[in-house]
Write a protein that binds this DNA or RNA. Sequence first.
DNA 1: TTTAATTTTTAGTCTTGTCTAAACTTATGG
DNA 2: CCATAAGTTTAGACAAGACTAAAAATTAAA
Lengths: 218, 218
Amino acid sequence: MFTLAEENYLKAIYHLEKESKSGVSTNAIAVKLNTQPSSVTDMVQKLAHKKVLSYQKYKGSFLTKEGKKIATNVIRKHRLWEVFLVEKLKFQWDEVHEIAEQLEHIKSEELIKRLDAFLDHPDFDPHGDPIPDENGNIKPTEKKLLSELQKDQRGICVGVKESSSQFLQYLDTRNIGIGTTIKVVDKEEFDDSMTIQVGETQLHITDKIAHNLYINTN
Amino acid sequence: MFTLAEENYLKAIYHLEKESKSGVSTNAIAVKLNTQPSSVTDMVQKLAHKKVLSYQKYKGSFLTKEGKKIATNVIRKHRLWEVFLVEKLKFQWDEVHEIAEQLEHIKSEELIKRLDAFLDHPDFDPHGDPIPDENGNIKPTEKKLLSELQKDQRGICVGVKESSSQFLQYLDTRNIGIGTTIKVVDKEEFDDSMTIQVGETQLHITDKIAHNLYINTN
DNA sequence: TTTAATTTTTAGTCTTGTCTAAACTTATGG
DNA sequence: CCATAAGTTTAGACAAGACTAAAAATTAAA
Ligand SMILES: [Mn+2]
Ligand SMILES: [Mn+2]
Ligand SMILES: [Mn+2]
Ligand SMILES: [Mn+2]
């Protein structure tokens, strides 16, 4: 059995591993979890001992198959709870992360099985992130960053990379959400900003925004 | 803010206080929480320092107003989650306690407010226990133990005193649940056992059963 | 290829919550 | 009313997780 703290470490390392392509550095984990590097060293040594990750001094950490299983299961629970909070309890999509951060640690296989059924086996959470199945499999989805689109290309917003409250509320006020059709009207090479069409209105956005919206172009 | 362990202590002491009428003994808390008396002494001293209970060496503990507020709030959350698990996720009434024991510690006022609304502001949990309101008020209900009924008296089962899996499953197999009408057909003075009528069938029960069923006679 | 900067680990402490063993109070029964 | 039992508290220890300060390894710069 894994503690709340251990689960949080495994989840963080899982996410970092996807970005970094190599071993996950102690510092990166510390930044993500808002702790000190020395605390991370202690924990990864313990987790290595428990065989959920491999670790070599100064070389960083890799999750083992077992570690990935646990991480994806926590992520599955997190995202299912987020769906519950938005779909059933009518929370806004920017309000659910904190609460799901707690709920993801509730221990009961049966609970998650039933929650999943209650929610009609959703494939994505309210931020467009895919929900892993019971075995940790995540079906790959067609999506690119809005910043990768060319002038005059259009697509549907299928997710957000960042999901901070500030960003989500920014999107809310501009009527951008999952499912919204977005067309690139113009791109400015100099600062990577672009003008986009959302419904009837045109909107000028910075590259920071464009780099955090996932688009499906089909 | 109170930790999970502190909340469990406050809840346990709250329940024990209702039974004992005087100060709650260190031993009683230890038994209820499955810990050692020495651990309890440490904790009640800490909680006394935090002003949620009053404690005198060798004299036991009393919750303060503040302590009762926290305890009833945890109980409110526990029971609301139990309703959710049974009403929405279709768990059996004997399967929900363990899970609610974890869920009761999730921290979010808003979550509970919305959960309560989602469940249509229930007054009782699946075991017939009343759900305290946001201020900790519990509306008193008319109920007595089945063992207190006289021969030929009848009433409706409105709750269980014990809620162990064994007992609840015993009731299930005999078609006794919340809302079931029960009539006392006969009482045996010698061993306090009784014969009761449930629907079409008669049933002989021991005093242990009769002492754990709450009945409303109106 | 040394030196300096950065990253990581170790050593030592702390808090929370638990335990055992021993000491101390209170309650009981002769 | 005193001796023993029962209940309770203290003393000392431990595991989990965190932190600070200092040492060591790695990387980058000169
Ligand atoms: Mn978490
Ligand atoms: Mn999400
Ligand atoms: Mn609990
Ligand atoms: Mn209950």
